[in-house]
Write a protein that binds this DNA or RNA. Structure first.
Lengths: 210, 210
DNA sequence: ATTATCTATAGATCTATAGATAATGC
DNA sequence: ATTATCTATAGATCTATAGATAATGC
């Protein structure tokens, strides 16, 4: 809507902003050095230095926007694959495995997720957490999960997923789907599924191209 | 040794270095803003600007040293409590619970551990990982643990522990030992201990002051 | 007429070093 | 004599803004 009816001015403005966010994402993925100068960010975006201040009051705001942008893109990509799944256990296993695929398809997203760490994701920022919480509540309500504390369980889930991506980024020789299945199996068992069932769910074929 | 026989020169030099590391730790805990100037770090350390270059070639090196210092202190504090324990399951549970205590006793250590994230810990830096790996291997060898992939299991353990600290730092109203017990119980079950046994081990009283 | 962009720049940093000073070893 | 510290500073940045330019709306 706001995109469609935007006039030429607004579209042009949007492109400048996008170029800046794009540049910030590159920096976050390459070196995670948020100390780079505004000047260098503007140059990387191929945008006049003054234009920066038309869109962001400070460097910090730009980087925050860049991280939010990545989280949004990641969540959108993964949730698109989950929308057909109903069983909370299967959704969690698929979430882990699709995350590994997204990471494989976009190393930039993976590196930024890893670098930005647990903090932002925990703060309720990423839609990741909200989605996992819903699945957790539903799994507990249906008796499929048995955990003492759902908040702590969600923490462990998200953190373990991030650790998987981190592990893969430092050791690319690992077979990512194999590792993702192993992680998912462990996590489902942690949540209370019997071992055999956890394995079965984690090894189920995924929709989409194998 | 090197400390004991150090002459006055070397001790003085050591104090300057310590002051710089101390200042860097403050910055890491307060804002995690590694973009602060070398000048401001020297001022915070109450040390001449030039002295900085007598000890560190760049800002990055100072912050690396500060993180290493924190990891060392943390590992030393936790391992001191673990050295009497033999059962790998009990060591892991106690590691989680003592970590929560160290975090409570030193918010600075906790914040730096959280901010520095998974990356450094995963890279084999922190003695945390080495210790956890040994316990994992021993637990698997003795049949007490049943996991498909020990590397992935250690990733999940460390990440979940960090997530617990992160959770507590954002929500201080949580009872930390209660949360640590819940986390430990979940993780031990994940590693293959039967539910009842996982609970028993996680709820065992800890040595030292309750 | 309005709006976003760009260029140019003033003023305030910051980094890294050179040289002076103070403290110790022998 | 040696060594680490400090002070002072040259030179290179960087931030934020002011004013000019180009593109669009009406």
């Amino acid at each position: 809507m706001s995109e469609a009816r935007a006039n030429r001015f607004q579209r042009r403005r949007g492109e400048t902003r996008r170029a800046l966010v794009h540049a910030a994402r590159q920096v976050l993925a390459e070196s995670d050095d948020t100390g780079v100068s505004i000047r260098s960010l503007a140059e990387r975006a191929d945008v006049g230095l003054g234009s920066f201040y038309n869109h962001f009051p400070s460097k910090r705001d730009l980087f925050d926007a860049a991280v939010a942008d990545v989280l949004e893109e990641y969540a959108h990509a993964v949730e698109g694959h989950l929308c057909g799944l109903d069983d909370p256990a299967e959704r969690i296993a698929a979430g882990v495995r699709f995350s590994a695929r997204v990471a494989g398809a976009s190393p930039q997203i993976m590196r930024i997720l890893c670098n930005s760490g647990l903090g932002r994701i925990h703060a309720g920022r990423g839609p990741l957490v909200r989605c996992a919480h819903r699945d957790m509540e539903r799994g507990i309500a249906s008796g499929r999960f048995a955990v003492a504390d759902p908040v702590i369980a969600v923490s462990a889930l998200n953190a373990s997923l991030l650790a998987l991506l981190e592990l893969w980024s430092t050791r690319p020789e690992i077979d990512s789907d194999r590792a993702a299945r192993a992680m998912a199996e462990m996590l489902l068992h942690m949540l209370g599924l019997p071992e055999a069932e956890a394995r079965e769910v984690a090894w189920r074929p995924l929709d989409g191209a194998a």
